[in-house]
Design a protein around this nucleic acid. Structure first.
Length: 323
DNA sequence: TACTCGTGGGG
DNA sequence: TCCCCAAGAGT
């Protein structure tokens, strides 16, 4: 029974008058599908969830937010040590807000995409200034913070505050694509249909919805993986639309793989690595050593400066930003 | 929408 | 070895 992801005639025909304005019509078949998935997935999570530091109560909303920033496109194993250092050094948003942004970039280390460090610092400042030092509870307020998008806002709302909110990351999208839509992989870009499906599948009960969000993510991360899913260990393999369809190969455009060698990104990474390691301002002549091609080198450095990741000083010297 | 933005480990 | 991909956001 593959669930339809769009409006079904049955559900939308005679719109129930008692529905509130923003309530969505729910396909009865999909509702049944959802109920059949909730218990197995949530129970599996209770038995197999990893003991990650940001899942412990003492992490608090700030800990959850820090972890979510770090986990944007970076694997858990690499995040763990940096997260621990970070939380020890800056246990509250105000602690980070009081620091120079360059210190956040330095402490970010080699997690990659260092703009995230800058944005996390900016988010901490906004929280300190506009929210009395407390991580906001409202999704819209979270969304207004730098570096917080649809996913991160939902994750904080759900994981930190236990609210009922659909959480749609790459893991969840893959689980739903397979279990419900019968596809090996989700579309390249998140679609409105996926968002709607995620809302439809969300359990009504708040506490269950929160567990469901974390559980579907964990299932995607540990079992329903991209490359080689461990279907024998999957709690919903018997109901999986993709399995029931014979695990067909993905059709449609392949995800375009991003190159790295020789790109500006690589040059930026090398430049920033030098600056992270330096305690004092670095003369340009030192930065020139990291890349042979002068035009690309200059472009990369300019980009870092305009992104606010690097601060230019008098006499062709550079450092991580003090302000 | 499609593209940019780091880094490194596992298949 | 090489390639794929990993709890996205911003433009």
């Amino acid at each position: 029974m593959t669930a339809t992801t769009e409006t079904s005639p049955a559900a939308s025909a005679g719109a129930a008058p008692e529905r509130t304005a923003d309530a969505e019509a729910v396909d009865p078949a999909l509702r049944e599908t959802a109920r059949a998935l909730h218990s197995p997935v949530v129970d599996w999570f209770a038995a197999h969830a990893r003991d990650l530091p940001w899942r412990r109560p003492e992490a608090g909303a700030w800990g959850v937010m820090v972890s979510e920033f770090m986990l944007q496109q970076t694997p858990v194993n690499r995040v763990l040590p940096v997260y621990e250092e970070w939380m020890e050094r800056w246990p509250r948003p105000a602690d980070l807000a009081a620091e120079a942004p360059g210190e956040a970039v330095r402490a970010w280390g080699r997690l990659g995409y260092p703009r995230r460090a800058l944005r996390l610092h900016g988010a901490a400042k906004a929280i300190a200034e506009r929210h009395k030092g407390e991580v906001p509870v409202e999704h819209a307020q979270l969304l207004a913070l730098p570096g917080v998008g649809e996913y991160t806002a939902a994750a904080v709302v759900s994981f930190a505050y236990g609210k009922r909110h659909a959480v749609l990351d790459t893991n969840v999208r893959r689980v739903f694509a397979r279990a419900v839509s019968g596809q090996q992989y989700p579309p390249n870009a998140t679609t409105a249909a996926e968002r709607k499906l995620a809302r439809m599948l969300l359990p009504e009960d708040e506490a269950t919805a929160s567990r469901w969000a974390a559980a579907t993510m964990e299932l995607g991360a540990l079992v329903c993986t991209a490359r080689s899913p461990a279907c024998t260990r999957c709690p919903i393999a018997a109901q999986c639309a993709w399995q029931l369809a014979g695990a067909p190969e993905h059709q449609g455009p392949a995800r375009r793989t991003q190159s790295y060698a020789g790109t500006d990104r690589q040059v930026r990474g090398r430049l920033l690595a030098v600056l992270r390691a330096a305690k004092d301002p670095v003369p340009q002549s030192d930065l020139d050593q990291v890349w042979h091609e002068p035009v690309q080198r200059a472009r990369a450095l300019d980009g870092l400066v305009s992104d606010g990741l690097v601060e230019p000083l008098e006499g062709k010297r550079y450092r991580l930003p003090l302000t």
